[in-house]
Every structure is written in structure tokens, then in C-alpha cells.
Simulated scan of single mutants.
Amino acid sequence: MDMNKEIKKLESVYLEKPQRVFSMYLNTDPSDPEQQGGEWKIQFKNGMNNFEKYLQEDGDSDEKRNFWAVKEKVENYVRENEQNFAKSLVIFATADDSVWFAERFQMPVKTEFQWDDTAKVSQLKEMHQKFPQTGIILTQKETIKILDTELGTLKETSFYELDLDTEDWRQHTGPHRAQATVGSGGKSTQQEEFQARFDANRHRWYKSIASKLDKVAKKNEWERIYIIGDKEEAKDLRANMNKEVTDIVNKNMLDHEEMKVINEVIAV
């Protein structure tokens, strides 16, 4: 999804009575102390009922029918997807289906509802400004993991692993092949030899992968780039990339769950 296009499309909407645009930002964050009991369900129900009560009092039967049509679609979406909610739910909708935008995000929002002639896009724009199309590059020795993200949501994951025989970086989309662990006797001679070889060749090896990462950044139109990894490795990779790196997080998170990594970047 091209979020810039979606936002511009929503900003261009203007409808006159009895047509209206429904806008909803719903905080569904289970880590929020105010959401521990699933309070979002109450807030959602109250928000929808308040509109219905207002329209009953207003007496415009056509507008009331339009709201009921939107309410049914929104309630169906919430019911069908509530088991997969993340931190927030954002919906824009009209009765005639000319507008339908429903997305679950890993970014927090302030709960609010609107039924008006325009879509209320201010929070969505703020979210996108904070977390536009973003590349997260995790480095750990001979493995590079790439997360293509936007608005705190994972779009795609890919890997590059260094073939130590040919010294070529090979891309694959499957899960990262974890390195064998060392027994209680300490580091093996083989691992010590690899570490020495890696330290001696890291700059050259990272220089060869950096050009590939620049191409990935250009293809995905990343507006921000974060590198996560060992301090020296991340610093070396950044120095070899032509694309500007927004920030470095000095943590080894290659094998961490993707959303934990994304949340680390959101917190930066």
C-alpha cells in the first residue's frame, strides 16, 4: 500500500448531506494500562451509539440510513478481525463504498470518532510522518536481515548470508539458518578462526553487501533506514552505504521476533 497516495485520496474527499465520511481511530493496545480489560470494546460501542443517538434526534432519515450502512460494515470488520488487533485500528468509510480504508497498526492512536463531510486524517498523517517507509537492517556477522516496514507494520522480510567459500552474499527469503551453538567448554577453535577471519575481512565484505542494500533501499523507496547490530559491525556497514542511515541501535536482535525489532525502532 502506498500510504502517501491513500492519505492524499482521503484528503480529497468532500461529501454533502446526506452523505458523510466516517473516521475512526481506536486504541486497541493491550499493553496500554487503560486497555487491560479490553476497554476498547466499550469505547467502540459508545462511539457508534452516540452517533446513532445524535442522528435520531436530528431527524434526517437519509443520513441516518447512510450511517446505519457504514455502522454495519465497520462492526462486521471489527467482529471478524478483533483477534488480530495490534495497537490500533483506523477506519474511514462511506455508505456508498466510495471510501473504505481499514488497517490495523502497531502504532498507538488516541481514540476518536468523526461523522462529517471530510475524512479526519490528522492522526494518520502524524503516524506516517513518524514512521514512513522504513528499512530496518539487522547485521550479525555473516548474516544480514532486512525488514521492509511502514507505519510500524512489517511488509516483507529478506536475508543475505555470506557464502564463506565464494565470499558472495546470497539472498534468500526463508528463515535465517542459526549458527551452531558452542558447548560448555567455551569457544571452539573453528569459531575463533572464523572470528579472526571476519574481523580481518569485515570492511571488504560489508562494502560488497552495502551496494546491494542501497539498491534495496531505492527499490522500496525508504525514507528512513535503521541499522541494528554490534557497534563496530553497524558502524562499518553504515560507512559503506551511500544511502543515509537515520540511526544505529547497538543491539544484537537478528533472531528476535520482527515486531519486537520494529517496536525497538518506534521507541528510538
Rank of each mutant, 00 (worst) to 15 (best):
residue 97 D to F: 07
residue 97 D to K: 02
residue 97 D to V: 02
residue 98 S to D: 14
residue 98 S to H: 10
residue 98 S to W: 02
residue 98 S to Q: 10
residue 98 S to T: 12
residue 98 S to F: 03
residue 98 S to R: 11
residue 98 S to V: 06
residue 99 V to L: 12
residue 99 V to G: 03
residue 99 V to C: 08
residue 99 V to P: 05
residue 99 V to Y: 06
residue 99 V to E: 03
residue 100 W to L: 10
residue 100 W to I: 09
residue 100 W to V: 08
residue 101 F to G: 09
residue 101 F to N: 05
residue 101 F to W: 03
residue 101 F to I: 09
residue 101 F to M: 05
residue 102 A to V: 03
residue 102 A to P: 04
residue 102 A to C: 12
residue 103 E to G: 01
residue 103 E to Q: 13
residue 103 E to A: 13
residue 103 E to N: 13
residue 103 E to L: 07
residue 103 E to K: 13
residue 103 E to W: 06
residue 104 R to W: 02
residue 104 R to I: 15
residue 104 R to K: 15
residue 104 R to H: 10
residue 104 R to A: 12
residue 104 R to F: 11
residue 104 R to D: 03
residue 104 R to S: 14
residue 105 F to V: 01
residue 105 F to T: 07
residue 105 F to K: 02
residue 106 Q to R: 10
residue 106 Q to E: 05
residue 106 Q to D: 10
residue 107 M to C: 08
residue 107 M to L: 15
residue 107 M to Y: 06
residue 107 M to E: 04
residue 107 M to S: 07
residue 107 M to F: 10
residue 107 M to G: 07
residue 107 M to D: 03
residue 108 P to G: 11
residue 108 P to T: 15
residue 108 P to C: 11
residue 108 P to L: 12
residue 108 P to A: 10
residue 108 P to E: 11
residue 108 P to F: 12
residue 109 V to L: 05
residue 109 V to S: 04
residue 109 V to M: 01
residue 109 V to Y: 08
residue 110 K to G: 12
residue 110 K to L: 11
residue 110 K to T: 13
residue 110 K to Q: 13
residue 110 K to P: 02
residue 110 K to D: 09
residue 111 T to G: 08
residue 111 T to Q: 01
residue 111 T to S: 12
residue 111 T to N: 04
residue 111 T to D: 01
residue 111 T to M: 04
residue 112 E to P: 03
residue 112 E to D: 12
residue 113 F to P: 07
residue 113 F to M: 06
residue 113 F to N: 04
residue 113 F to R: 02
residue 114 Q to A: 15
residue 114 Q to T: 03
residue 114 Q to G: 15
residue 114 Q to V: 06
residue 115 W to P: 03
residue 115 W to F: 15
residue 115 W to I: 04
residue 115 W to H: 10
residue 115 W to C: 00
residue 116 D to T: 07
residue 116 D to N: 12
residue 117 D to C: 05
residue 117 D to R: 14
residue 117 D to Q: 13
residue 117 D to G: 10
residue 117 D to A: 14
residue 117 D to T: 10
residue 118 T to Q: 13
residue 118 T to C: 14
residue 119 A to M: 04
residue 119 A to G: 09
residue 119 A to T: 00
residue 119 A to P: 04
residue 120 K to C: 08
residue 120 K to H: 11
residue 120 K to D: 13
residue 120 K to S: 13
residue 120 K to R: 06
residue 120 K to P: 00
residue 121 V to N: 00
residue 121 V to R: 00
residue 121 V to K: 01
residue 121 V to L: 06
residue 121 V to Y: 01
residue 122 S to K: 04
residue 122 S to P: 00
residue 122 S to F: 11
residue 122 S to R: 00
residue 123 Q to G: 08
residue 123 Q to H: 07
residue 123 Q to E: 01
residue 123 Q to M: 04
residue 123 Q to A: 09
residue 123 Q to V: 09
residue 124 L to F: 08
residue 124 L to R: 01
residue 124 L to Q: 09
residue 124 L to N: 06
residue 124 L to G: 09
residue 124 L to C: 09
residue 125 K to A: 10
residue 125 K to I: 13
residue 125 K to P: 15
residue 125 K to W: 07
residue 125 K to L: 10
residue 125 K to E: 13
residue 126 E to A: 14
residue 126 E to K: 05
residue 126 E to F: 06
residue 126 E to V: 02
residue 126 E to R: 03
residue 126 E to D: 13
residue 127 M to P: 09
residue 127 M to D: 02
residue 128 H to I: 12
residue 128 H to A: 12
residue 128 H to R: 00
residue 128 H to M: 09
residue 128 H to S: 05
residue 129 Q to M: 12
residue 129 Q to R: 06
residue 129 Q to I: 14
residue 130 K to D: 12
residue 130 K to I: 15
